[in-house]
C-alpha cells in the first residue's frame, strides 16, 4: 500500500485512489483522420515499463481529481506527483 501525495489533498493512503494507467497518451484531436494502425496505437499500445513509469491516478475517494505520478514500478517508489496539464519532471 503506497502513500500517495495528492497534489490537492496531501498525503493519503493508496486505498483512496484508483489507477488510470499510462500517462501522457493524448487523445487525437481528429480521430477520423487516422488510419486503423494509428488509432490502434492510441487505443491499445501501452508501455508497461519495469522502472520509472508515468502514470495517471485519480483521488477517487477524496477530491476526485486526476493527476500524474512518476513511479518506479520495480520498487513502487513515487518520485513525483504533478497536476494534469503540467509538464512531467525531467527524467532523473
Amino acid at each position: 500500500m503506497f502513500i500517495i501525495n495528492c497534489p490537492y489533498c496531501g498525503e493519503r493512503d493508496q486505498t483512496e485512489f484508483s489507477s488510470g494507467g499510462e500517462a501522457h497518451i493524448v487523445r487525437p484531436k481528429q480521430p477520423t483522420e487516422l488510419s486503423d494502425d494509428e488509432w490502434a496505437e492510441f487505443l491499445f499500445m501501452r508501455k508497461n515499463i519495469k522502472g520509472i513509469q508515468f502514470e495517471r491516478w485519480n483521488h477517487s475517494h477524496g477530491c476526485r481529481k486526476w493527476f500524474n505520478v512518476v513511479r518506479d514500478t520495480s520498487n513502487d517508489k513515487i518520485h513525483a506527483v504533478y497536476k494534469m496539464g503540467e509538464k512531467p519532471p525531467a527524467n532523473k
Binding site: 484508483s18 493524448v26 495517471r56 485519480n58 477517487s60 476526485r64 481529481k65 486526476w66 494534469m84 496539464g85
Partner: peptide, 13 residues
C-alpha cells in the same frame, strides 16, 4: 461519473 470527470479534467479542460 469517473469516466466523464476523466474526460473533462484531462482531454477537454
Amino acid at each position: 461519473l469517473t469516466k466523464l470527470e476523466d474526460y473533462l479534467q484531462t482531454e477537454w479542460p
